[in-house]
Amino acid sequence: MANNTRNRWDIKRFIETLNYFDIIPFIGTFPKWLCFNKSEQKGKEQSMGVILVLGSMSAVGQQVISQLLAKNYQVRTIVQDVNKAQELFNEKIEVIQANESNFDLMKQVNGIICCFDSLNSDEQQLLKNSVELFQGQNRAGEKLLFDFTKPNENMRSLWGAVDDVVMGGVSESNLRFVRERAIFSGNVSIANNGGFASVRTRNFNPPLDLSNYEGIQLRIEGDGKRYKFITRCEGKWDGLSYCYSFDTIYNFPQTLQIPFKELIPVFRAKTVSNAGEFDSSKVYSFQLMHSKFEYDGALNPRFSPGLFGLEIESIKAYGGQQNTSQLIVATPEYNTTVESILKNSELIYTLIHYLPSTSINKVSQSCIQALENPQLGCSTINL
Rank of each mutant, 00 (worst) to 15 (best):
V53K: 10
D238M: 02
E346P: 03
T337R: 13
Q369R: 14
I249F: 04
V60A: 11
L263K: 02
K150N: 08
D247L: 02
R232L: 03
N193E: 03
C233L: 00
S157C: 13
V188W: 13
R13F: 12
K12M: 12
C114R: 05
S118V: 11
A275L: 09
R13Y: 12
N361A: 11
A182N: 04
L144C: 09
N274G: 05
L310Q: 08
F293Y: 15
N83H: 06
L52Y: 13
S130C: 11
S198D: 05
P356S: 09
K128L: 11
F89P: 00
E142H: 15
L376P: 06
N152Q: 02
N174C: 08
E214C: 00
N3R: 10
F21D: 08
I112Q: 05
R179C: 03
V363Q: 05
D296L: 07
I23Y: 15
Q74V: 00
N129S: 12
D164S: 02
K343F: 01
T358D: 11
Q287V: 00
I112L: 09
K107A: 12
K12F: 15
N212H: 03
S357Q: 15
N152H: 12
Y244W: 12
D238F: 14
E221P: 00
N83L: 14
P206E: 01
F26A: 09
R226Q: 13
N300K: 11
K71P: 04
L371G: 02
V53A: 09
T380K: 15
N335L: 06
F303K: 06
G111Y: 02
T5M: 01
N373M: 04
E132M: 09
G49S: 07
I23L: 14
F177V: 02
N154M: 11
T201L: 09
G320Q: 10
L342K: 05
S241Q: 10
F278Y: 12
G43M: 10
F184H: 05
K343W: 00
T231I: 02
S314E: 04
F229L: 01
G320P: 10
G49C: 08
E123A: 03
A85W: 14
V50W: 15
I368W: 05
C115I: 09
G55I: 09
L256H: 01
Y318W: 11
I352M: 05
F278H: 08
G186P: 06
